[in-house]
Design a protein around this nucleic acid. Structure first.
Length: 807
DNA sequence: TAATTCGCTAGACCGA
DNA sequence: TCGGTCTAGCGAA
């Protein structure tokens, strides 16, 4: 019987039904979660041949595999954006297995010039071809007996209030890590808009606590709740590698069906590289931990550790207590302080929920732009996002995708690196009255303004060569817009328009938040394009384009500095897209504004120079071991007294707190107060504290990441040495873990003396190391700029003040 | 199995 | 034990 239903389109996958691979699409409304079948859509790929009619017959007649090819169509396609359409063969199959064997078998025909789009996963193929946008509202006509999809209509996204729920487990861990084969779940918490619960076998004196009789019941209650709440999104913190695999294994042990997906389907654990991802049909699993790491990549947060406590504090400014694994065991075994554990458990779910609520909107919008389901887009890298966007555009414009490069090609590309941005060596020392100018979205605007795209490179027109030649001598078409540049331009213009609209909306209103998220996701995409051009595995890789972008960037930034010098400013420094100027006494901030305006009048297209900020005072320091000044390292103070510290040890996690704090205090004394004597006193005090043995572990820890298996290190640095020692004591050291180590007094080389902080007793540290290798190197270059030497720091020293420098 | 290059610095490593 | 070179990590843009 034909039935019609409205709902939200979530995702698509496929299933094997006998000989056929059949697409399923997941559509939900608040009553039901549907999985519709779309058997009419078949796997396919293209081949390019000279005589399509003839070759089609030949292939149809020849049996080149154990199956019969379902169909071959002759279709008109462009092989690339600048070419005309030509007929190509579309080979259609009943299953992905057939496609896979045919794409190899087809190479036996010498008339096959090329294969295209033969490696696109079937579900992704469907998402591209159907044009369905995840989380849009759809009206579906279907056969209620077979669940076969008859018609699907996409409507403008209506109001979207996704139901999000988060859960978190506390598990027993007699060893260092919980083993789901052996160790039970002790507690579970669940949080959504209306519910906050924890379940535990032991009585907990909290309103939100529910007593269960055993672990089985605990798991059943959790699953039941997730099902009852009819969620759209399930959020976890590290659920990809911990919580979801854990409940799956415990479920098998305890005979509990943990199917929380559509039609109670099980969480699907997939291997992706080194890690797990867990996908659930009809219920989007968002691992907020992964989301946080992406936020970090885009600079929303910058943390040493990405545990929930640190992230929660960084994002919301709220401290959250951490209960360590050993303590969890202890609480459970003694039955004392169960409330503490329960609170912690609940807070984890709450924090996860809060982060999801706050940031999901950005990924929802991003998912809509690139047409990726939430599950995918919350785990996607910059390269994936750009690729997906280009795939969609290519399909719309009837252009076949370029093939992925082969390993040999990738190797060649990787050998061929290219020159990047320009970094000027700064004028070291203290400077007063500065302005920093920078280009807004430099790389995207260069690509748009000069129409940089592989398909516009060195076109046939004489005129383009004359009018639009990059400093590399390659040029780009001025008559037809390039594929990449036009997508960028569209994104750019939409973003400008959105930002204009945002100005009229009330902050924190629903509409504001939605549009803000959209413009932010556009920004993410805009900034991701340039890098992919030089990425060896990218389908649209173009050395010439990548190089042209950086050549232009160098040209423009040098040009601005030159113009400024001509106008009477002194160019102090610049890095890639910025120019640091000293404003002469004869000029005002208004003059700077006028100067920038003049520059902008001369810049092409949508390129734009901005005033980043005015600074009262700034310092550039010398480089170690040479006379030169260090690049990418400076500190500035604006006219409100705000300090901006860039590149210094202060911003690096692989330096101890004591060194970082001392450096910051010194910079403050110098820039804010102009007090060099104070700066020196600060250093002396830190040295004294170290000597007295008073400094706490917290201020001595050095954080360094283990980036490869311990065995494969050629050079054993302190962090590797500490890791190896810890490993011998039974600590599991994983690739990617950030270690905290301290340099102790026990041993010869620095590595010998390095120990993981957890094994170091308070007070056991090498004060000499922390003075000579941490505090002094962090401050000496600054002190030098003030006219003092290391001698002055350790011994007496002469009297000088900043007036010495500024008259 | 997923964007780029430029740059600083530490500390091991290695040969004289 | 010295000094140059190399490995490694992290940050800026």
């Amino acid at each position: 019987m034909n039935t019609v239903v409205k709902g939200i389109f979530f995702n698509a996958d496929y299933q094997q039904e006998g000989q056929n691979s059949v697409i399923r699409i997941f559509v939900k409304n608040h009553q039901t979660s549907y999985a519709f079948r779309d058997p009419k859509f078949k796997p396919y790929f293209y081949i390019i041949v000279d005589q399509p009619e003839k070759r089609k017959k030949e292939i149809m007649e020849k049996k080149f595999a154990e199956f019969k090819i379902q169909d071959i169509q002759i279709v008109q396609k462009k092989l690339s954006p600048e070419q005309n359409e030509i007929p190509v063969l579309k080979l259609i199959f009943n299953s992905t297995a057939e496609l896979k064997s045919a794409r190899d078998a087809v190479m036996q025909f010498e008339f096959v010039r090329e294969r295209r789009e033969y490696d696109m996963p079937f579900a992704k193929r469907y998402r591209v071809d159907s044009g369905l946008i995840p989380l849009n509202e759809v009206t579906v006509k279907y056969d209620s007996e077979t669940m076969e999809l008859l018609e699907i209509k996409q409507e403008e996204p209506a109001k979207l209030d996704l139901r999000i729920g988060c859960f978190d487990l506390e598990t027993h861990s007699p060893d260092r890590f919980s083993n789901p084969e052996l160790d039970p779940i002790l507690m579970a918490s669940y949080v959504d808009e209306e519910k906050e619960i924890i379940w535990a076998e032991k009585k907990v004196n909290r309103d939100y606590a529910v007593l269960v009789k055993n672990e089985k019941e605990l798991l059943e209650k959790l699953i039941e709740t997730i099902r009852e709440q009819k969620l759209d999104v399930i959020g976890t913190y590290n659920g990809d590698s911990f919580d979801l695999p854990y409940i799956k294994t415990r479920g098998e042990k305890l005979k509990v069906n943990v199917g929380i997906g559509c039609e109670n389907s099980q969480p699907n654990i997939k291997r992706r590289g080194q890690e797990n991802v867990v996908e659930i049909n009809g219920l989007e699993h968002v691992d907020v931990y992964e989301l946080t790491k992406i936020l970090a990549r885009f600079g929303v947060v910058n943390l040493i550790k990405y545990d929930l406590e640190s992230v929660n504090e960084a994002l919301f400014g709220e401290k959250k207590e951490k209960v360590k694994a050993t303590e969890i065991n202890q609480i459970w075994e003694t039955g004392k302080n169960l409330e503490r554990l329960a609170d912690y458990n609940l807070e984890d779910s709450r924090a996860t929920y809060r982060i999801a609520k706050e940031y999901l909107l950005t990924w929802i919008e991003l998912g809509k732009i690139v047409r990726m389901p939430l599950f995918e887009v919350t785990r996607a890298s910059a390269g994936i996002l750009v690729e997906q966007l280009l795939i969609n555009k290519s399909f719309e414009q009837n252009i076949l995708l370029p093939n992925l490069p082969e390993e040999g090609t990738i190797g060649q590309r990787m050998l061929q690196s290219y020159e990047g941005g320009f970094v000027k060596e700064p004028e070291h020392g203290l400077h007063e009255n500065m302005v920093v100018l920078d280009f807004s979205s430099l790389h995207p605007t260069i690509m748009i303004s000069h129409n940089i795209s592989a398909d516009t490179l060195d076109c046939k027109h004489k005129e383009c060569e004359e009018k639009n030649k990059a400093p590399t001598n390659h040029y780009f078409c001025t008559q037809r817009k390039g594929m990449l540049s036009s997508i960028l331009e569209e994104l750019f213009n939409k973003r400008i328009e959105l930002k204009r609209k945002l100005k009229d909306l009330k902050k924190d209103s629903l509409e504001y938040n939605k549009l803000y998220a959209r413009q932010y996701s556009q920004k993410i995409l805009l900034n991701s394009f340039y890098g992919t051009l030089g990425y060896a595995r990218f389908r649209w890789y173009s050395y010439e384009c990548a190089r042209a972008v950086t050549a232009y960037s160098q040209q423009y930034v040098k040009w601005v500095a030159e113009q400024a010098e001509i106008e009477g400013y002194k160019s102090l420094y610049g890095d890639t897209d910025s120019v640091f100027l000293k404003i002469p006494e004869t000029k005002t901030q208004e003059d700077v504004r006028k100067f920038v305006e003049q520059i902008n009048e001369k810049l092409p297209g949508n390129m734009n120079l901005e005033i980043e900020n005015f600074y009262k005072r700034g310092i550039f320091v010398g480089k170690k071991g040479t006379e030169e000044a260090a690049k990418k390292k400076y500190a500035l103070m604006d006219h409100k007294g705000n300090l901006k510290i860039v590149g210094f040890e202060y911003v690096r996690r692989d330096w101890s707190n004591i060194a970082k704090r001392t450096q910051k205090e010194v910079l403050e004394a110098v820039l804010k107060e102009g007090d060099t004597q104070k700066a020196i006193q600060i250093v002396k005090k830190a040295i004294q504290e170290l000597k007295d043995g008073k400094v706490l572990k917290e201020d001595l820890k050095i954080y360094t990441q283990i980036k490869r298996p311990l065995k494969s290190y050629e050079s054993i640095g302190p962090h590797v040495a500490a890791a190896k020692k810890a490993q011998a004591k039974g600590v599991r050291i994983e690739v990617g873990s950030v270690l905290e180590y301290i340099i102790t007094r026990n041993g010869k080389s620095i590595s010998d003396r390095a120990e993981l902080s957890e094994f170091v007793k308070e007070g056991n540290y090498d004060s000499d190391y922390y003075i000579q290798n941490q505090v002094l190197p962090a401050v000496i270059k600054i002190i030098n700029e003030l006219g003092y030497t290391e001698e002055d720091l350790i011994h007496g020293g002469k009297q000088k003040t900043l007036s010495h420098f500024f008259g």
